[in-house]
């Protein structure tokens, strides 16, 4: 079994190598590569460190999380994060009790406002934590969301 998965891994990486060689992966898209480590981190602290490059997080009252108190369906939980801070560089959304806490991270352009809205899956009742990176510093806010039917699994 080990040998088989090893072989699979080699084939996959060689395909990727060919794709990169053929110029299918432009340097730009490599720069903005998907942060694999951040999406494999099992704890929030590791996830924050991997996604945003720091772990010094200050709680802030200037981050507004708009989400339901009770989510009837954990597969679709609408979340809106907004902040009045200036110079917001990134916003990340973590869900504490999910198998992988990091749900998504966003890199904002210079003209982009501190506002993100999306829909996430939640396995069970958990804190949702929004981390905002502004002028090199990290700020966070959290909100408890009760889930009656989980969204991660069958």
């Amino acid at each position: 079994m080990k040998r088989r998965s090893f072989l699979k891994g080699t084939i996959a990486s060689s395909i990727l190598g060919v794709a990169a060689g053929a110029g299918l992966l432009t340097p730009q898209s490599v720069l903005a590569a998907w942060p694999k480590a951040a999406f494999e981190a099992k704890t929030i602290d590791d996830g924050i460190q991997a996604a945003l490059g720091a772990s010094d997080v200050t709680e802030s009252g200037d981050i507004n999380i708009k989400a339901p108190d009770i989510a009837e369906n954990g597969a679709v939980v609408p979340v809106t994060i907004s902040t009045g801070m200036s110079g917001v560089e990134s916003i990340a959304i973590f869900i504490e009790k999910n198998p992988v806490p990091l749900a998504s991270s966003y890199d904002l352009g210079p003209n982009t406002e501190g506002f993100i809205s999306c829909r996430v899956k939640m396995g069970k009742t958990s804190d949702l934590i929004a981390v905002v990176k502004s002028e090199g510093k990290l700020y966070s806010a959290k909100k408890m969301i009760k889930v009656t039917i989980g969204g991660c699994g069958g």
Partner: peptide, 16 residues
Amino acid sequence: VAHWGVAISKNPYLAF
């Protein structure tokens, strides 16, 4: 630029 994991719902919605 957004990086998503599997915790984003089916048929994703994004606003900014």
